[in-house]
Design a protein around this nucleic acid. Structure first.
Lengths: 106, 106
DNA sequence: TTGACATGTGACCTTTTGGTCACCTATCGT
DNA sequence: ACGATAGGTGACCAAAAGGTCACATGTCAA
């Protein structure tokens, strides 16, 4: 499995995207903190965090008995740059689409 | 299942990303053409294309007995703008401002 | 030092996903 | 008209993913 593949697969699950949202809102949360924010047992959250870690979307630091989780945006940026930009051609395409959209509404 | 979810799930599979690559390289390919480019039966490709269509990443047009497939980058851009930029802090402010400006003129 | 707390592991189950196949319909060219 | 060609459907199967649980280790704090 390639790095890209791991990242895309990790992003495919809504719970995992929500965990990233939580870490984006506040870095350094523990498993227990994250667990309390989703309707799922600790074990489910652990599995999701493991997937995110293996995709390098989350990095961790031990602090005593706690494990702190941090969002790492680098893989997202890489996927973004290597793959998504190719299809979005943003600055030009967005304007063209918007123009068409507005014209069709007249 | 939300639109976002469908798009992320569709992008999670490497074969589907490859199909998008193929359509990016040459638009309007038929099922048979696409099939010949991947190590899989026609039925497998059909299933993947169905997932891509349901995510609106691929749009189609019938032409006689052929079905032509086209890449549609709009959902990718939406996911990109709504979700990925949040983590990558890209410089898209100008475009977004312009979009908002144009939209407010409606 | 001992009980509560934070995390970890492996087995287990269910649902989803990826893929194939038999069979079917529609359309083209001659 | 008719064979070849393009695409479609539903059943089916194996593998992977999502989730829970029993049990286990390490760490804090009084």
């Amino acid at each position: 499995m390639t790095d890209d593949d791991r990242v895309f697969k990790a992003l495919a699950d809504p719970t995992r995207r929500f965990l990233l949202d939580l870490l984006f809102a506040r870095e350094g949360q523990t498993l227990t903190e994250l667990e309390s924010a989703v309707a799922m047992t600790r074990y489910g959250v652990m599995k999701h965090l493991k997937v995110l870690e293996e995709a390098d979307l989350v990095v961790t630091r031990r602090s005593g008995r706690e494990k702190l989780h941090f969002l790492n945006a680098v893989p997202i940026r890489e996927v973004h740059d290597r793959w998504i930009d190719k299809y979005t051609e943003r600055h030009v395409a967005a304007l063209i689409d918007l123009k068409n959209e507005l014209e069709s509404e007249r």
